[in-house]
Design a protein around this nucleic acid. Structure first.
Length: 595
DNA sequence: GCCGTTTTCGGCCCGACTGTTTTCAGTCG
């Protein structure tokens, strides 16, 4: 992926008061990003804007906790110098930054929100504010519909159309956050509660446990015979300024990021039934309850009961409940009532791929192009995850902004060979992420491509071509014998850019025919392929590569989201080429090039 | 504001597309 600018899912939160939990890297990154955007809107020097933007990304990808660093160590972070280091430590110490507050005072928060609309950048957002006093997305929508933009220089009919379309996209994602933002928060809440003596088991449930691609609220479940201390600890959670409800079994807070978190405390012996109930999905629960009903049983969050006697049958674990209903345990990622109950009854539930099955990552970047870490650091991080193989796939020359050249990629290949000598236990593969151009061609000629161990090929531009052109474009990429994997196939950015319009059945048929794998990209704003298309591809016999597209060491951990998405598409480890032993993987890659 | 085997100043990823314009600014990747 090119420059990572995840505007739609960045937590929009005011600064946290000093004395709260230490600021996370994500939080500091978001504050620097906000500063960059406000500078851009207020007409700050563009180079300055860019440095804050780059510093924000570097902090977001920093493998250590930035809040614990002193001024000197802060300056070791790329693009963090004296001034930004000072601002970071000011934020860590006081919960805010004076300079940021000054900018906030100049520009209403809603004006910055306008730049979330695709095709609206800082310049035009400011113009709308200054000319029409528009200071929120809702006001902008009104202004467009009232035709108030008609008199403005530079805003024509197409601009109106693009703005309205962009607002629709935003509304669709409204109130939902990325899987990664939700997971981070849930982990912190669970950690906060699990530290208490009174707390038994504690887990997040709901759509997060099912790994849906966006999350509307977080459900946390805890087992305890003494709920009160948990509820008290929950409402005093540092990131929770607003308490929505505070009762003996259920408490709800709203975090500074605007996300609602519900905590439910159940007796330890009701754990399984409660976890099942609060994990959902609702349609899945209804199916399960129907099965119980037909067996003369009643299932609720408190347990599985005999209808006649009212006696508790089972409730302690999910496995107990499913078993008593004649079913094997069903992985949460499958619980969407998409046929999993029938499959379970027939004993045909797929053995879905797990994170442990993954032997290596086949799509990653370094700071040779737009990554944040060196090849050396990325390889070390990969090794510490226990990978058996690892591919470096930096961008190719046609993505002009990355300044790749033949010499640079060949020098990197030499470097990778040297790193290999120090890593006898992990096989390093030297690859590239090619750019699929509007005609379906890629960056280099066959003789140069033959020098790579593997090639990912992805679409990075011209997303709005007609359906037949986009389809032909992807089919042609598949037919290139050196293309092993189609990267982030739909090119969507969740809540920001819709998927490209393609005849997927035709593309998947081409993938199956040519033996080209399809990526399941783990980046939280991509999750591409999405689960429904994974199912269609799988049914055509297509193989997958579950990759992170990591641009920093910390991104390697995004793998869990890709694996979760693969599970939602019922993918088994045999369907995933990077679960295979190296020998089988190499044979797959060679097979492609020998065509 | 950051950075430097072109270091303490003068550069800074850069080309393409879009919609509007009548020669280009803004946005994007």
């Amino acid at each position: 992926m090119a420059t990572q600018r995840d505007k739609s899912h960045r937590p929009r939160r005011p600064a946290e008061p000093a004395g709260g939990a230490a600021a996370t890297n994500q939080e500091i990154s978001a504050v620097l990003q906000e500063y960059a955007e406000l500078l851009a809107i207020t007409g700050g020097q563009q180079f300055k804007v860019r440095v804050y933007d780059k510093a924000a990304r570097a902090v977001g990808g920093c493998p250590t906790e930035v809040s614990g660093l002193d001024i000197k160590d802060l300056q070791a972070i790329p693009n963090v110098g004296k001034s930004i280091a000072g601002k970071i430590s000011e934020y860590v110490a006081t919960g805010t930054i004076g300079a940021l507050e000054e900018l906030r005072a100049k520009v209403p928060a809603g004006v910055r929100a306008l730049t979330e609309i695709p095709t609206l950048g800082p310049k035009r957002a400011l113009e709308l504010y200054e000319e029409l006093r528009v200071s929120s997305v809702a006001e902008l929508e009104q202004a467009v519909r009232a035709e108030e933009l008609r008199g403005l220089r530079g805003f024509g009919p197409k601009a109106e159309e693009n703005i309205l379309h962009g607002i629709e996209l935003l509304k669709h994602a409204a109130g939902r956050v990325s899987l990664d933002a939700a997971m981070g928060l849930a982990d912190r809440v669970v950690g906060h509660l699990a530290a208490l003596d009174e707390c038994g088991r504690c887990e997040y449930a709901g759509s997060l446990r099912r790994m849906r691609e966006t999350i509307g609220d977080i459900d946390v479940l805890a087992a305890s015979s003494d709920a009160e201390p948990l509820m008290d600890a929950f409402v005093s959670f540092a990131e929770a300024p607003e308490v929505i409800a505070h009762g003996p079994t259920k408490t709800s807070i709203r975090t500074t990021g605007g996300l609602q978190v519900d905590l439910r405390v159940v007796p330890p012996d009701a754990w399984g039934a409660a976890l099942l109930y609060f994990t959902g999905s609702k349609p899945h629960n209804i199916r399960i309850r129907e099965i119980a009903q037909r067996a003369g049983l009643k299932l609720s969050e408190y347990g599985l009961f005999d209808v006649e006697t009212g006696d508790l049958v089972v409730s302690e674990t999910e496995e107990d409940v499913y078993e008593r209903l004649g079913l094997p345990w069903i992985p949460p990622t499958l619980r969407e009532d998409r046929g999993e109950v029938e499959a379970a009854r027939r004993g045909e539930l797929p053995a879905v791929v797990t994170e442990r099955d993954i032997r290596g990552d086949l799509h990653t970047h370094t700071n040779l192009t737009d990554g944040l870490a060196s090849a050396d650091d990325m390889v070390s991080a990969a090794a510490s995850r226990g990978y058996r193989y690892y591919a470096i796939t930096d961008h190719a020359p046609n993505l002009f902004m990355q300044r790749m050249s033949d010499d640079k990629i060949l020098a990197q290949r030499e470097q990778v060979r040297k790193l290999q000598a120090r890593r006898p236990r992990m096989r390093l593969l030297h690859g590239t992420e090619l750019n699929i151009d509007p005609d379906g061609d890629v960056d280099w000629p066959p003789e140069f491509l033959a020098g790579f161990d593997l090639c990912v090929a992805s679409i990075h531009s011209h997303f709005t071509q007609p359906r037949d052109q986009l389809t032909r474009r992807l089919v042609r990429a598949c037919e290139n014998p050196y293309v092993d994997i189609i990267g982030h196939p739909t090119a969507r950015l969740i809540g920001k850019r819709p998927p490209i319009d393609v005849d997927w059945d035709e593309v998947f048929a081409a993938c199956a025919r040519t033996g080209t794998a399809v990526e399941i990209n783990s980046f939280p704003d991509r999750l591409d392929l999405p689960d429904t298309l994974i199912t269609r591809a799988r049914q055509r016999g297509v193989k997958f590569a579950v990759d992170t597209d990591a641009h920093a060491e910390v991104h390697l951990a995004f793998l869990r989201y890709g694996v979760g998405t693969a599970q939602r598409g019922w993918v088994t480890s045999d369907d995933v080429i990077n679960t295979w032993p190296l020998k089988r993987l190499r044979a797959f890659l060679r097979h492609r090039a020998s065509h």
